[in-house]
Computed example of a mutant assay.
Amino acid sequence: MVEKDRVLNNINYIFKKYSGKEELETEIYRLQSHILELELDVKTASIRHEKSAASEKKAIAAKQEAEESLKSIEVKLLTLEHELEKQRTDAPGEFSFTHVDQFSKQRTEEFISSISSVNYSTESLLTVYVAAGEQLNNIKDHENLIERIDNESLVLIEKISSSTGFVLFYSPDHMVNELIIPPLPLKRSYWNTGNYFDTTPFVESLNEDASMCVLVAHAGESFVGLSLDLIEFDSFQVIKSSVKAKHAKGGFSQRRFERLRDEDIAHHIDKVKESLKGLLEEFGDSIDYLILAGDSQLAREITMDVPLNIEQVFSSSDIRIEKNNVSDILKQILIYRRYRL
């Protein structure tokens, strides 16, 4: 716990150094102290007003002056607090990935083959597997793990958003700092060090024998498909409906238009649900994953009352349904994302 606090303190130091956070916090503390003084002045002026009717005008003037100063300081304080919050939000942006890429399965196999050939004389190569839904601090003995990774890399790892987990290949000399996000969920978290990177679990996941049902949801045009081998779709359907575009004007006409548009979308949802249920009823026992892509909110509404005991995975791939691109949908679903720290 002490080591973890030390790492977090180091990260906070970096944020303060590059964002001016420390100066902002000092100024906010000073203003807060000033506000307390002004509030005391207001209270004192109110007491004077109550005690002496003769000095009423003077007391009122003093109270008004104190209240105006207080209001001015509060506005300035709010501005600085907003700026500080923005600095806190933007601070991780000071560090950026040196490279971001998307790999097909074949390209990933070639990449992992290259990674597995790296050999160090000392057991300093770090391999980390983080399962779906977990983070670095969920891993066993994570305190020792975190102290092996530099602060900048830790900040970058925190920026990664993945519903399927990730794999980190890390060398302390930064010759290899690669983070890979697989399209399908990783099942187990663990880490180790050695002369080689531990790529065996990754290769096993590449060759996983699985089947999936795919839902790509868009208002007016959605896709439902089934692949039993992750190579091609064995069954699929493109569901199209007439859905009005968004209204640009205001007033009653817009409200009526949006109501009609909502009715169109609801009708489209019902059609997609019917298609999805048909696939699940026929192949449900043989489906390992339900992949959701496209409009995430629409996908959630479509699957809301569908009885599912299948693991759901939200894909981050920006998939558009176009004529004759059905084979590309599966390729985009199975994309591996690669980040170089």
Rank of each mutant, 00 (worst) to 15 (best):
K271T: 04
L70G: 06
Q297K: 13
E152A: 15
H34F: 10
Q254K: 11
S46Q: 09
V203A: 11
I157R: 08
N119S: 10
E83G: 11
L84W: 05
S286V: 12
L334P: 01
F15K: 14
T79K: 10
Y129Q: 06
E27L: 03
G284A: 10
R320C: 15
V128R: 00
G294H: 03
I181D: 04
K244Q: 15
R30V: 11
Q312R: 14
L184T: 11
M1D: 12
S72Q: 14
I115S: 03
M304N: 15
F257Q: 03
N177F: 01
Y29N: 08
A132S: 15
R337M: 10
I28F: 00
L334M: 05
I146Q: 08
T79A: 15
F169C: 06
R261F: 08
L24I: 08
L38C: 02
V272W: 01
R6F: 11
Y13E: 14
I291M: 06
L126I: 11
Q312Y: 09
K159N: 06
K63S: 15
E74H: 13
A248M: 04
L184W: 06
D209P: 02
S275C: 02
L36P: 07
K277E: 09
A66Y: 03
I14K: 06
A245P: 01
V167C: 12
S104M: 05
A266T: 12
K271Y: 06
N325C: 13
A293I: 03
I60N: 03
E232H: 13
E301T: 09
A266E: 13
A248R: 06
A62Y: 06
E143S: 07
S96L: 02
H142K: 04
N151P: 11
H218Y: 07
L36F: 11
K323W: 11
E50G: 07
L80N: 04
S235H: 10
D141Y: 13
V306A: 10
